[in-house]
Nucleic acid binder design. Sequence first.
DNA 1: GTTGGTGCAAAATGTTTGCACGGGG
DNA 2: CCCCGTGCAAACATTTTGCACCAAC
Lengths: 137, 137
Amino acid sequence: MTRTWHEELRARGYRVTPQRQLVLEAVTRLGHATPEDICAQVQETARGVNISTVYRTLELLEELGMVTHTHLGHGAPTYHLASEADHVHLVCRGCGEITEVRPELVQGLVSRLDDELGFTTDVQHLTVFGRCRNCRS
Amino acid sequence: MTRTWHEELRARGYRVTPQRQLVLEAVTRLGHATPEDICAQVQETARGVNISTVYRTLELLEELGMVTHTHLGHGAPTYHLASEADHVHLVCRGCGEITEVRPELVQGLVSRLDDELGFTTDVQHLTVFGRCRNCRS
DNA sequence: GTTGGTGCAAAATGTTTGCACGGGG
DNA sequence: CCCCGTGCAAACATTTTGCACCAAC
């Protein structure tokens, strides 16, 4: 029996507010979005929602395990739904393109880190920098 | 025939300055250091060296291929010598510990990304987040 | 009615830039 | 002597925080 996220929030003593609903919708809709992207998206529906509320809400949603973030470059982090996070990011230093690849590609690495060092990899957060086919010299 | 880095700088039309020497020494000495760490270290020898000079110098040294940086967390990036960069970083989300592991551990991943996608991995910049043996729940 | 959540402004943190001066070559 | 590199201050970008008010329950 899965809870709705309304119930999830309430069960943990948090309130359900329009801002929280809107932020979650924005993350769902945008994927790979920075806090500022998300804020802009939210404000298309409800003007006046503050960027600091977006930060606080993202922090909360991440704590609840509903969203995750990754660092895809130097600037702001990007957020997306945890349920859609089952992939690894490739970021091309040449053209900036972001590619999502299936997590099986890193299974060997993950197993080896676990076997040899007892290290549990956070695959959702893994980002590999390099150069894509078109951009290699 | 390897050039000294003085010659390297001069050969490319850059000047050799005390500040640049001090920044390079600091990076060598500290390893995994943030621009601010480096600035502090430099100022132990020469007060008055400005943080913006440190940033500009790190950018230069990186362009020359003498240092590289990685993002080991949310805050500032960390710099270290490119010649000592032949390793992958593990960062534990629990205790924050940073471990360096030999690059062979990721060879499988690197080959697969190359074979399947034509993607050339920047191994020096690769950071794997997760939980170390002591911190896993 | 309580208390947690929000908006706002300000502070904190990290990085970049414009400019005039001084030192490296 | 030229002009690159530096210090300084200010601008910028991103995130966090203090506080009064408002709304969820």
